[in-house]
């Protein structure tokens, strides 16, 4: 049994799929010779050669637009944006082309690609390196947004993302790239792209989280457990398409819900989940839904980022408030 980090699990998934499928290529800034600034694509150049592992010039719109062109030919690019903070020049191609190519050609052309980007705070990174803007992308028809929370889920979800015939934005919570290890057998087994994971079952409250906040939610559940409060923890994982069935079923059981994300609160993905609960699960609730989120401020620089990011204490306090 080999215990590996999320960073290693993502690399393992890339190696597995590139070995199985000759159409899969990796591209981005510093991904080849350097193996990526987070070393996610390390050794891929040696294993698969320069035709399939490509350092691009430094231009993010180009990375997206070029990947779309490749994908229209059935090449399956896994294109890396070095940080999510630099993805915005590519927004045009993601919203205007990647998400629409299949629809606007009535299925004649499609866009089987994955855009990977390290995202989120917590590593004392410089300005523009720590934001969580998954909500901007989850509003776009035609794409999927996936955020893993553990090494095993990162492996299975990335395989699914690469195999999916449509564009997937795969956001990697860099705070937990190397925070903990798991046994991740290299079986090539993909996970579903439209299902939440119930990470811990419980009966008193449902805590909904994703990405790096999932570990905080699990930690909060441990704290609450010591006080006799039984929390169910759901890892949303697939932000789009959102699996509300699993969340609503859980709330039927617990009657309470706390939603956690590190992104700013207003119009965050938590707002969508809360709205769905209001529409379809209101009568399951014994108390209002509560959100624990980043603030509607600019993401602070490292000195204050801990004050911005939700943590287990804030989550457990919120749970006590709704119970």
């Amino acid at each position: 049994m080999t215990m590996i980090t999320m960073a290693e699990a993502i690399n393992q998934a890339l190696v597995y799929e590139m070995t199985q499928d000759q159409d899969v290529v990796v591209m981005g800034e510093d991904v080849a010779g350097n193996g990526g600034v987070f070393r996610i694509t390390v050794d891929l150049l040696e294993k698969f050669g320069p035709d399939r592992v490509m350092d691009t010039p430094l231009a993010e719109s180009m990375i997206a637009g070029c990947a779309i062109g490749m994908a229209s030919q059935g090449v399956k690019p896994v294109a890396e944006f070095q940080f999510m903070g630099f993805i915005y020049p590519a927004f045009d191609h993601i919203i205007n082309h990647a998400g629409r190519l299949r629809n606007r050609t009535r299925g004649r052309l499609s866009c089987p690609l994955v855009f990977r980007a390290p995202y989120g705070g917590g590593i004392h990174a410089p300005e523009h390196h720590s934001e969580s803007t998954e909500a901007l992308f989850s509003h776009i028809p035609g794409i999927r947004v996936v955020i893993p929370s553990t090494p095993a889920r990162a492996y299975g979800l990335l395989l699914a993302a690469i195999r999916d015939p449509d564009p997937v934005l795969f956001l990697e919570p860099k705070a937990i790239y190397r925070k903990f290890k798991q046994n991740v057998p290299d079986t090539g087994q993909a996970l579903p792209l439209d299902k939440c994971f119930i990470s811990k079952t419980g009966s008193d409250v449902t805590i909904v989280a994703w990405g790096a906040m999932h570990a905080e939610a699990m930690h909060a559940a441990d704290i609450l457990e010591a006080d006799g409060i039984s929390a169910e923890v759901i890892d949303v994982a697939t932000i789009k398409q959102l699996d509300m069935k699993t969340i609503l079923t859980s709330i039927e059981k617990t009657g309470h819900c706390v939603i956690v994300h590190e992104a700013a609160r207003t119009n965050g993905v938590g707002a969508e989940i809360a709205a769905e609960i209001a529409e379809h699960g209101l009568f399951s609730l014994h108390a209002p839904v509560k959100r624990v989120t980043g603030f509607d401020t600019v993401m602070p620089y490292p000195i204050l980022e801990k004050k911005y990011l939700p943590n287990a204490d804030r989550i457990s306090k919120a749970v006590r408030e709704v119970l």
């Binding site: 719109s61 180009m62 997206a64 637009g65 070029c66 990947a67 779309i68 062109g69 490749m70 994908a71 229209s72 030919q73 090449v75 191609h93 082309h97």
Partner: peptide
């Protein structure tokens, strides 16, 4: 840019 991708 799409053209560069197809050409790639």
């Amino acid at each position: 840019l799409h053209a560069t991708g197809v050409a790639s």
